[in-house]
Simulated scan of single mutants.
Amino acid sequence: MTALDAVGRRRSWPRVTGDAPGHDELLPLVAAAGTVADHGALRPWRLIELRGDALGRLGAAFVEASGTEGKAAETLAGKPLRASLLIAIVVTYRPSPKVAEWEQEAAASGVAHILSLLLAEAGWGVMWRTGHLTRSEPVRRLHGLADNEQLLGWLYVGGVADGGRDVRTERINPEEFLTVL
Rank of each mutant, 00 (worst) to 15 (best):
R141H: 09
M1G: 15
L145Y: 14
S136H: 01
E170Q: 12
A108M: 13
R43M: 06
F62T: 07
Q104M: 05
G153I: 11
T2Q: 08
G131L: 01
L151V: 01
H23K: 05
T35F: 07
R129C: 10
L117M: 14
T35W: 10
A73R: 05
T68P: 00
A161F: 07
R51G: 03
L118T: 13
W102G: 08
L151S: 06
I48L: 07
A20N: 07
T75D: 11
S12N: 05
W154C: 03
G78R: 05
A41V: 10
V99K: 04
E137N: 05
T17M: 01
E101D: 14
L76Y: 02
Y93I: 15
V126K: 07
G78A: 04
R46S: 10
E74Q: 13
V36H: 07
L118N: 11
G158Y: 02
R135S: 13
V99M: 02
P28M: 03
V36Y: 07
E69H: 08
H143V: 01
A32S: 14
A20C: 12
E137L: 08
P44V: 05
P80A: 10
H132M: 03
T179C: 05
R9L: 12
A41M: 07
D5K: 15
A32W: 11
E69M: 01
V99P: 04
R140E: 09
R9E: 14
S109N: 05
F177A: 08
I87Q: 00
P97R: 13
A54T: 13
L152G: 15
G70L: 06
G59Y: 11
M1C: 06
P28Y: 02
G34K: 13
S84F: 06
A73D: 05
H39M: 11
A65Q: 14
Y156V: 00
A54Q: 14
R10P: 01
E101W: 04
A161P: 05
V126D: 09
L85E: 01
E175W: 08
S116R: 09
L26H: 01
H23P: 06
P95H: 15
A122K: 09
R10D: 01
L145E: 10
G163S: 13
M127V: 11
G67M: 12
L117Q: 15
V30L: 15
R43T: 12
L47G: 06
L151A: 01
A146K: 11
R82N: 11
E149I: 11
V157N: 00
V30Q: 14
T179S: 12
D5E: 15
T75K: 15
S12W: 02
G67W: 14
G164W: 06
L58A: 02
S12R: 03
P138Q: 09
Q104E: 02
Y156E: 02
A83F: 10
G110W: 09
N148G: 04
L76F: 02
A100D: 07
A112R: 03
G144C: 05
E176W: 09
P97H: 04
G52I: 10
Q104D: 02
